[in-house]
């Protein structure tokens, strides 16, 4: 009875499936295969080496320290991005329209989202420029010369300098998502709470947060995936691991790039990619499990 409907569905789906297969599935599978070879990147031969690349990586101190850098981002980025984005979102939605000037701030805070990461990286290179950068200049004009640093040339500041840029450029996006989630909460809940004498904090923690928990979970996963990646901004802002300071923020993705493009070890780079994929999947599942709460329908 219904089977002839597939005759219509299949031709419509086929192009999308084929494109997906060729440009998404096949590269993934190919990367898995590459990770089992010692391919040089330019040879037409791909000598099979089994799991040797993985074995080498697990004892490679540089890979492990790159993982450590990602772990640091994984802690820092969600913490700051979600806290600040929640704060802004509630400021700009409270009482329906938010504080004075909300419309302006909503637009301005979203700006970084429409700038490409490369431009942001270059922009902040100027901000952090040790001699004429706006950061050091501002510190100087406030009489805080002793706080001036070579932000991107010093192992003790480079991580925070980069994390700040990522936080700055990500807040807008999550703020918008949180705002839409908050706006969908019926105002009657707040009215009832106000009548019962609940403070604004109490309302935020007992009404807003639980009702938008699903949104926060999703965002947490997005940010975690971004923290496990961290390539473009670091590559642009540090020049890619050529100094001790840059090495101190070398992420797994940067190391993968170096293995492939400067060391001609594409097999090893593919293995790093596979590990990164697996870690990202595992991590997403963990976050999903750990943050699972009772959901509320309203």
């Amino acid at each position: 009875m219904h089977h002839h409907k597939y005759r219509i569905v299949i031709p419509f789906l086929a192009p999308a499936l084929i494109i997906y297969g060729v440009f998404v599935l096949f590269p993934y599978l190919n990367a898995f295969y590459l990770s089992l070879t010692s391919w040089s990147g330019t040879s037409s031969e791909r000598p099979f080496v089994g799991l040797a690349n993985f074995r080498d990586l697990l004892t490679d101190g540089r890979f492990l320290s790159a993982l450590g850098t990602n772990a640091k981002f994984l802690v820092v980025l969600p913490l700051f991005i979600i806290t600040i984005a929640l704060l802004y979102a509630s400021l700009f939605t409270q009482g329906g329209t938010g504080i004075f000037g909300s419309g302006f701030y909503r637009v301005v805070f979203f700006f970084p989202q429409v700038i490409s990461a490369v431009i942001i990286g270059i922009l902040f290179q100027y901000v952090y420029n040790p001699r004429y950068g706006i950061l050091n200049a501002s510190l100087e004009s406030m009489g805080l010369e002793n706080l001036q640093r070579t932000w991107l040339g010093d192992s003790s500041t480079i991580f925070w300098a980069i994390a700040a840029v990522v936080v700055w450029s990500s807040i807008g996006f999550y703020m918008v998502i949180f705002m839409s989630s908050m706006q969908s909460i019926p105002t009657s809940f707040y009215e009832a709470a106000t009548i019962d004498g609940a403070s604004r904090w109490r309302q935020f923690f007992d009404i807003t947060l639980p009702l938008m928990w699903e949104t926060i979970r999703t965002c947490l996963i997005y940010i975690s995936i971004a923290a496990l990646d961290m390539f473009v901004i670091i590559q642009v802002m540090t020049g890619g691991s050529q100094t001790s300071a840059a090495r101190s923020v070398e992420t797994v993705a940067i190391y993968m790039y170096i293995e492939a493009f400067s060391k001609n070890r594409w097999g090893s780079a593919a293995a790093i990619g596979v590990i990164l994929l697996v870690l990202t999947l595992i991590f997403s599942v963990i976050i999903m499990r750990v943050t699972k709460r009772e959901t509320y329908e309203y």
Binding site: Q125, N129, P130, R131, T150, L152, G153, D154, T243, A245
Partner: peptide, 16 residues
């Protein structure tokens, strides 16, 4: 060596 040199890209250093 000029202060801050280690944090400069090639074009920044050359500009200075």
């Amino acid at each position: 060596i000029m202060e801050g040199t280690e944090g400069l890209s090639h074009t920044e250093a050359q500009t200075f």
